[in-house]
Nucleic acid binder design. Structure first.
Lengths: 338, 338
DNA sequence: TTGTAGGCGTTATCAG
DNA sequence: CTGATAACGCCTACAA
């Protein structure tokens, strides 16, 4: 059926091992032999079986991408495509395949640890930090198994993330520089690390410019449209309302916009709005949103490179990357009316 | 290092083959032995190597997902996540992994055919029709290799798609029913199959209701914001302008909205707008867009199921699914002002 | 420089 | 029911 290394060897009148060495371009084989064997391989349409190679080499030439497909509004969901693209752009040329693993419905027995790692289906793992808990990370460390986290983790691990704190500072500072005096912060759950980072940047910017922080202007809620809307409604009907808002997500911002429109509050004249993330809405709201763009492709590339270093043991030290976001200024923060 | 089947066999005082049979729950093994061996496997933390199993069984328990990651505005891009989720929901429980393969930068030698198929890295393939050309499909047929296309293909192949023609009819009819008399069609390239399907639905609806078709109201262009905008500007300044538009994509519609706003044309009062696709903008434009939603998860589920049938040879016949889209009525088609 | 033999961790086919 | 033994297709000493 399928042509194997033995077939080629027979046809070329050499030993299997010779063919194998040709395959791996061993320097111990004469050029003539290489030429000849390669010729025959081509003629016979020989393609080595990666399963057999994997078994012999004890490596699958595959990396696993852990995703929780249950979470619709997942970080990975939005940036999935770019991040994967970045990872692939470094793994692909090196001959590695990418395997997607949904960690959602697998119970203990069928856990990805068994399913992929101990299984030897993958040589390394990339996962975001909502999936790769610190407990799992410890286990991988114990097994000395290569992995990189997308999203901040505890110091022991290698991870790449974008600088949420800087992002919070940038959005807030931008509002202040535009002449807004009293920015609020809407969206996000207290216990989420990403929220606390973003909020912390907001607080830093306020303090650095000597403004006072008003706790009642920091609103925790789901980072979606509905909650953004509700939060904004409550906040904006008050006498002493903020003159601008930093929003956790595009959707939060959309909700805030809607509330402002209903209350007859003009954006940006009476309310400035700046939001995290550039996708999917910032360009398309009315008015368009000032927001933060992040180079998700680069996030993928870096995590891929580091994982490769890990796998090839060029570098097993834990590293971290904090990618600086880019401020995209649009109409929603054009400045308060005087 | 790693514990193998031999280790278990030794510890249990049985033959490797016995352990293997226990692993596969062969009926030829006594329950006592099964119990005992399983116990020991658990104690020793034995996990079978899927590579070895693959080699022995000549199957990788993996399916390949072909994607062209270069195309940013790719169909798959937008719906990627849901489709993959659907595929995984059927493959995962059956013990199959998903492997992503970027077909973009691989040249002839490094083609996915070699890289995945002939390689035996995957047991089957799912790809969308922009990636899986008919030429490739023929080759796979020749190899008798299981695959399913996401998106219409020639009759010989199995494919799932949503009914673009019906979609075109639904949007157009809806406009007419709302009282708009003269809908235009904006966006899409003549040579794209998806465009011709959608357009054809539009034409059908017009003819069925006895309206005349105006070729100059069918505008070909990139299906993005900019081109939607430009096309709409040209169309809407004319004396005999259409009173409504069917848009190829969300982005096209956004461009049209922008043009209308600039020209002072009210939506929906003076211009009705209906658009294909529900993501990412339809809910968030001003006014929100009437659009078509499709069950992308189901697209994934079906393609996964069919591929499994193919792999297991339950059913190798070629099948096709045309998923009916769902009309989501929103403000943008509320009806013309009288 | 090339060939021989054994191993990678399973499954499958027979005997017993 | 259980156990040898030979695949599966490739790699890697070590020997020639």
């Amino acid at each position: 059926m399928k042509v194997t290394i033995s077939d080629v060897a027979r046809a070329a009148n050499v030993a299997k091992s010779t063919v194998s060495k040709v395959l791996n371009d061993s320097p111990k084989i004469s050029n003539e032999t290489k030429q000849r064997v390669r010729e025959i391989m081509k003629q016979m349409n020989y393609i080595p079986s990666s399963i057999a190679t994997g078994l012999a080499r004890q490596s699958s030439q595959t990396v696993g991408l852990l995703v929780d497909m249950s979470k619709e509004s997942e970080f990975l969901n939005q940036f999935f495509y770019n991040i994967i693209g970045g990872i692939e752009s470094v793994m692909g040329p090196l001959g590695y395949e990418l395997t997607l693993c949904n960690i959602q419905h697998h119970d203990a027995e069928d856990h990805f640890l068994n399913r992929l790692v101990l299984n030897q289906r993958v040589d390394g793992i990339i996962a975001n930090n909502s999936v790769l808990t610190e407990e799992l990370a410890k286990e991988l460390d114990r097994l000395n198994f290569p992995y990189v986290s997308i999203g901040e983790m505890e110091p022991a691990a290698s991870w790449v993330d974008f600088d949420n704190e800087a992002g919070g500072r940038m959005l807030t500072r931008h509002l202040l520089e535009q002449g807004y005096c009293s920015p609020a912060f809407i969206g996000g759950q207290r216990n989420e690390r990403i929220f606390s980072r973003r909020l912390s940047g907001y607080l830093q910017a306020l303090k650095q410019s000597g403004r006072l922080v008003r706790q009642d202007w920091i609103v925790n809620s789901q980072a979606d449209e509905h909650e953004g809307y509700r939060s904004a409604l409550r906040l904006l009907v008050r006498e002493d309302r903020p003159d601008s808002v930093v929003c956790m997500t595009n959707y939060t911002a959309f909700g805030v916009l809607k509330a402002a429109r209903e209350l007859g509050i003009e954006v940006p004249g009476q309310l400035g709005i700046a939001a995290f993330d550039e996708y999917p809405l910032s360009r398309y709201t009315t008015p368009p949103l000032t927001s933060l763009n992040i180079d998700t492709f680069k996030l993928g590339v870096t995590s891929g490179q580091w994982l490769m270093d890990h796998i090839r043991e060029n570098c097993t030290a834990s590293r971290r990357l904090l990618l600086e976001p880019e401020l995209i200024v649009r109409e929603s923060t054009a400045g308060p009316a005087r």
